[in-house]
């Protein structure tokens, strides 16, 4: 029994990490159709900020989270204003936004990644924080992983609640469904767009900050996370906060059980099999409406 509990819990924790990584991109791509392929790079920036804060200024990484979130939010508003504002305004259709923002995203990816190489070099960096293990129901888990898990679940549920039950959440969803219609009923998309984009980057930064407690960081760390985020979002359904969370869990569980019963080397095969299976059964994702 304890064995099963541990296996399931490990899978859920890994799944929580995947869901966390996907949160920010889900705001940008899921709700605004901005295909920000440089998502992982901003996650990397968040991780480096936290690492700097912890090693240079000796700040507790958890207390540093709001700083990272604010910094990345501000950066997001600036990036939106410089790069994406024109695309959104001039694009005749949502599909065009996707295609054009993808190109801009690639540019940002190279820019941010290489800036990080210039600033910090290619070396792996890391620090130890909350690496002690705790006993939960007879199984042992590292505290930092539990923190990441708790944050992923909390933030996903919060996002879900905001989108579903608040006026601002409704406005954001309206903006996606019909940009012109949203303007007609008095939704200020000029204000809402940069804010949502900035929130997406803030979430990416926070995810990076949390991950830097668990994994080593390097300027090239972002790309695999972008891929993970895309899989999770597509799996869960574009723009669905609950879908991202459950999609992440599903991936984590499949990987963990697969690792136990087959070989860790089959991990990628299993993840993609799940993705393809879901897409065949529900082409719009598990929780798309």
């Amino acid at each position: 029994m304890a064995f099963w509990f541990e296996l399931v819990a490990t899978g859920l924790i890994t799944g929580g990490i995947y869901a966390l990584v996907a949160l920010g991109l889900n705001l940008q791509y899921g709700l605004m159709r901005i295909m920000n392929i440089s998502h992982g790079e901003f996650l990397m920036l968040g991780a480096y900020l936290t690492w700097l804060g912890h090693t240079v200024l000796q700040v507790n990484p958890i207390l540093f989270l709001p700083v990272v979130a604010l910094a990345l939010f501000a950066l997001g508003v600036v990036v939106y204003w410089l790069c994406f504002r024109r695309i959104i305004r001039t694009a005749p259709a949502v599909e065009v936004i996707e295609a054009r923002s993808l190109l801009v995203g690639f540019g940002l990816l190279f820019l941010v990644q290489n800036a990080a190489y210039l600033a910090w070099g290619a070396d792996l960096r890391g620090y130890s924080f909350l690496t002690e293990a705790v006993d939960v129901g007879g199984a042992r888990f590292q505290v930092n992983r539990l923190v990441v898990f708790a944050f992923a679940v909390g933030a996903s549920l919060l996002l879900l609640a905001v989108l579903r039950w608040t006026l601002i959440g409704k406005a954001v969803r309206a903006m996606m469904q019909s940009p012109t219609g949203a303007q007609l009923v008095g939704i200020d998309t000029r204000f809402l767009h940069p804010v949502v984009f900035g929130l997406g980057l803030a979430m990416a930064g926070v995810a990076g900050a949390l991950l830097s407690m668990v994994y080593e960081i390097s300027p090239g760390m972002g790309e695999p996370y972008t891929v993970t985020a895309l899989i999770v979002i597509v799996l869960g359904g574009l723009g669905s906060a609950l879908g991202s969370l459950l999609g992440g869990f599903l991936l984590g569980l499949v990987e963990t059980f697969g690792m136990h019963y087959t070989s860790p080397s089959l991990k990628m095969l299993l993840s993609y099999a799940v993705l393809i299976g879901v897409l065949l059964a529900r082409p719009k994702g598990l929780f798309a409406r």
Partner: peptide
């Protein structure tokens, strides 16, 4: 003896075994 892919994010199940 078990192989694993590079960049794996979790090996706890294998280590437990």
């Amino acid at each position: 003896k078990k192989s694993y892919p590079i960049g794996v994010k979790d090996l706890q199940p294998v280590l437990n075994d």
